[in-house]
Design a protein around this nucleic acid. Structure first.
Lengths: 179, 179
DNA sequence: CAATTATATCTCGACGTCAAGATACTTGTA
DNA sequence: TACAAGTATCTTGACGTCGAGATATAATTG
């Protein structure tokens, strides 16, 4: 029988996860340190990693890579006529400019976006979704949402709301202060 | 003045984050879809991304890359004599075998780990932390915890506990079922 | 014991990302 | 107008990761 920590019992039928094991290992090896922060932030990182894998799988059913989805949906959300500058795409996707140039090139080659000169700034470019790009984005989004709903079925409606709120408090400083 | 959503008022002095804007955009463009899952899972992914950047910064003060920290601390947590097989390191760090071989090579070149033949399996290898590798891991961990505590100062003690618990419910299926 | 299957690690080529710098254009100022 | 500083995007080279396949050894089966 496995002993549980007394200072934070697992909820009812709760399961252990990798971070529980990680934290236990640190407490054994470094009892002098307070490793409580890992309980939250290591879980965030590991969950993100798992989500990446799951998404890659979901998108592959629509012939898209995760990075393609990110760019196409950024344009899709912009609303008709579904166009943004590379710079606007940068801030939405958190990649560097060299990466974005490369992504736009490849999406253009696949016929999912097209590059247009910006009529109001000759330095600039506008990236526009093609009709096919829009369809692919919409289909992949529906697939993603279905998958995510399944993952979140672990939680009740109100738990999901709580979780979203707590995460917002952590992300807001990054998103609002220059970051 | 910016209008807030009526269906999920931000808590008191709460701040909007990028995901609020993202969700609002989808509700405008695709009012037919229920995008609630994004409230949680997009925040997880974005926060993880921000954490990656912050960690890179924190580790650079100790002359370590994030991937180096991952490997060194996996060995550190194993306890004396601080050694694991490449295969065990794989499962802890979620990278592929080619990547791990490369990482071990580079860490060995820096003198932070050494490769030993596994006495009980001639196919196998054991990777062992050197004394310097151990020191570097310990220092970087202290720095990381300090940084994470600062990020988590946004939340109360009990909120952090709640958040950890909710995240555990989401990660447990990935960590326990084959994944 | 021989043959087969499984396991542990490494090799290698393709690929995406990053960071720094280059280029082209715009804005602010005198 | 002319010039400096700022901005938008693209180019380039280095780097880390992945994934498929290669090699060596171990375990299983008949």
């Amino acid at each position: 029988m496995k002993r549980l920590h007394v200072d934070r019992p697992l909820t009812l039928i709760g399961m252990e996860d990798e971070v529980d094991r990680l934290v236990a290992a640190w407490r054994r090896e470094r009892p002098d340190l307070d490793v409580e922060p890992l309980e939250v932030l290591s879980r965030v990182s590991r969950l993100a990693r798992h989500l990446d894998r799951a998404r890659r799988l979901a998108f592959s059913e629509h012939g898209l890579e995760p990075w393609e989805f990110d760019v196409l949906t950024s344009l899709r959300r912009a609303g008709a006529p579904y166009q943004l500058s590379p710079g606007q795409l940068l801030t939405q996707t958190l990649v560097t400019s060299g990466t974005m140039t490369n992504r736009i090139d490849r999406l253009a080659k696949k016929g999912l976006v097209e590059r247009l000169p910006d009529p109001s700034d000759r330095r600039g470019v506008l990236v526009r979704l093609t009709p096919e790009g829009r369809d692919r984005a919409d289909q992949a989004l529906a697939g993603l949402l279905a998958q995510e709903r399944a993952i979140l079925a672990q939680l009740s409606q109100s738990q999901r709301g709580d979780l979203a709120g707590l995460l917002r408090q952590l992300t807001a400083p990054f998103d609002n202060i220059p970051g």
